[in-house]
Write a protein that binds this DNA or RNA. Structure first.
Lengths: 232, 232, 232, 232
DNA sequence: CATGAATGAGGTTTCATTCAT
DNA sequence: TATGAATGAAACCTCATTCAT
């Protein structure tokens, strides 16, 4: 009995090793340019072994992306569960996302691939459904937070929380993607720091969904933080 | 001399024919799935001939995308030039973008590819710079509009107009992309109509950049329009 | 000591089980198309276990073929040993071969593989020599029969009995192979029943090796049998 | 118009070059052991180019075999058309086949593959039908010859000429195959020269299909030839 | 210019065979 | 002995791109 479990665990570990090797290659080369040969070499395995665990390059890509997604969602989850203040929770989620962008920005590119329908068609049903349920959990958490916010009169009640969640997440993600791709270009051409623009965008969107009272709380929070940063 | 010009014109026509054929194929299949063979067949030319006019598949894809971009920008330009009211201009631009989405939504996918740095690396310098300057004109127009808005106290002055433009355009485009890809999924799973969410997002973003006074004007406009629609 | 013997017997039994499973798969799919996975599944064993007992797919194939060969040779042996009349023996051997073809025709394909030198190169020395000695016994028996026939003036004496044996067996086997492969084609295209052609071929070859006197005996035998068949 | 024809011819030439390269490789290694890479290298072409002209390794193999078949059939055709004496024609065909065996024996292996139904399943419809019609011509020629022989009372009339043709060709081919594979073995073990056995088999089969009168003519022919050989 | 043919590259797939446990 | 996993090899297949005419 224990043997079967151990085997199971080892299989998982092997899969994780492959995903980790694939991550390195995909981060460096992107989906199209990366080859299964490169990934096999990075994993120190044969190409056939990769196909033993993942039915296609796209599936493997999705598995890598899901790793990033889970990491990010994990942080969100933690904040949502432990931060009693909705305003603070939103703020900390922004911080977490920014931190994620700073340290693992390549995932952002990957996330943007995930929603392309073109891409989804090439992925196995199993992976797609795994991915879908993961996403679902994520949306549920954010929507839940916003619903609580509405109840607490923190979030405006004239917009459907689900729609709000979509707008919130879409706005944030898309600006990150742009920041990842065009940061240098905007700096060079118009002296714009997209990192700062991301903050601006966040603030605008959060402002837009808060009730007037909560907006004051949010501004106070930003102010306090700003002061704290400048003190250190 | 006239002969050279005629040749030039014919060459342009041939390029346009190729782009039009490529558009049909890319619309149906997407960048990765579409093949040069299919495009050649659609254009009733040989594959090699495509390469006489475009150095790579990506270049051709970009050429198609640029066609859509120019069409959309043309409409924006016209509104910006002829609509004296900033608020009305923003509103009409939203309408134009929504109309564009309704009729040529496949371009939205393409636009999202354009900003991927992975993609840009595979494109010829010439095409890239053409694309960049086209984009530049576009940004200039929007930023110009917002600057005028700041001067007229229509647009809030505490956010850099360039940043605002980026946020505005990025938010709008990203929701369109999501609507293109996930419309059915959201309808099915949570009974969300992403078309409506797009409107919500627009309204939220525009609200967020207007001064309080202008916001009233905007709401009046929406109200009037709403009434007009329900009358007909 | 008894334990070792039991082990030995069990090992043999296991080998036989594998050969039987392999037989089913090879009969259905042929050497090239059949896979070790399929055989392993049919044997309810892992692929690796097959390799504990047989060093290669070809060896296993040969083991299966040898089973058929032994069965057929056994019948021949029995006839040769117990049938005093050479003419009757030849006739009964033909009958036995035809019966074998009717009930286990798939072996005929396998036999034809055996003689391909390409094939032999891929087989273990041990298996090859087992196979060779089996074959040797077979040839020895037929040649012995023919030699006896020569002594009894049943078989013509101007052709070497060994050559005769080769011709006899080769002709018979090759027509069977053709019948196995092309039966339907000949029926369809030229309304030829290769089963009947096999009989024709046998008769021609036997006719060709008998002395004139024996030929009459053979014809009488055929005639008697023909009458018996038509009576029933 | 001439251009199209020239292109056509060049395409044929290229195909022939590939077939010739493949022939060398298949002769050396056999169907299973030979790889498309080796053939590509031998042809000094890329593997992809091979697949441009032949849809599979099996098709290419068949094309090679067909080359040999056509060569052999050509010689038969020539004899059948120009040799007025049926007996002489049969004899010269045997000589031609023996000569073919001496100089291009590897084809014999290939021919034996052709009739395996296993093999045929892996071949394109086009190639299969080309092959079938080639074979048909061949059978038609031999059957025609035998029919003429029956009319001229050279060939016995109590066996269907088609069946006779099958027996004749099958016997001859199968002994050649055995000679190709087992020549050394028989020489070593029983001091049998299969080359001579082939002659024996031919003589037996031809004897078996001739009328008594023709058989005398045939023996005279063999005798004359034997004398001629021993004189030189 | 236009094109048919060629090609290098790499993804996908399948397998016989081997290895570590 | 038995096995799950790994693997090297190669067929198969598709394409973007290039070349020779």
């Amino acid at each position: 009995m224990g043997i079967i479990e151990r085997k199971e665990r080892e299989k998982e570990r092997r899969k994780d090793e492959i995903v980790e090797a694939a991550r390195r290659v995909f981060f460096e080369k992107g989906l199209v340019t990366a080859t299964m040969d490169e990934i096999a070499e990075a994993a120190e395995l044969s190409k056939a072994t990769l196909y033993l665990h993942f039915p296609s390059k796209e599936d493997l890509y999705l598995a890598v992306a899901m790793g990033g997604l889970r990491a990010l969602h994990g942080k969100f989850q933690e904040i949502i569960e432990h931060e009693p203040s909705i305003v603070r929770a939103l703020h900390r989620m922004k911080e977490a996302y920014m931190e994620f962008f700073r340290t693992q920005r390549q995932y952002v590119q990957m996330f943007s691939f995930l929603q392309m329908s073109q891409f989804h068609k090439q992925v196995s049903d199993h992976m797609r459904s795994t991915c879908d349920s993961e996403n679902d959990k994520h949306w549920e958490a954010i929507i839940g937070l916003l619903r609580r916010g509405v109840e607490q009169k923190i979030i405006r009640d004239d917009i459907d929380p689900t729609e709000m969640a979509i707008v919130l997440w879409t706005n944030a993600s898309s600006l990150m993607l742009r920041a990842d791709n065009e940061h240098d270009m905007w700096k060079r051409r118009r002296n714009i720091d997209l990192r700062k623009t991301m903050e601006t965008s966040f603030r605008m969107t959060i402002d837009a969904i808060l009730t007037p009272a909560a907006r004051l709380e949010y501004q106070a929070l930003l102010h306090a933080e700003h002061a704290a940063v400048h003190q250190s």
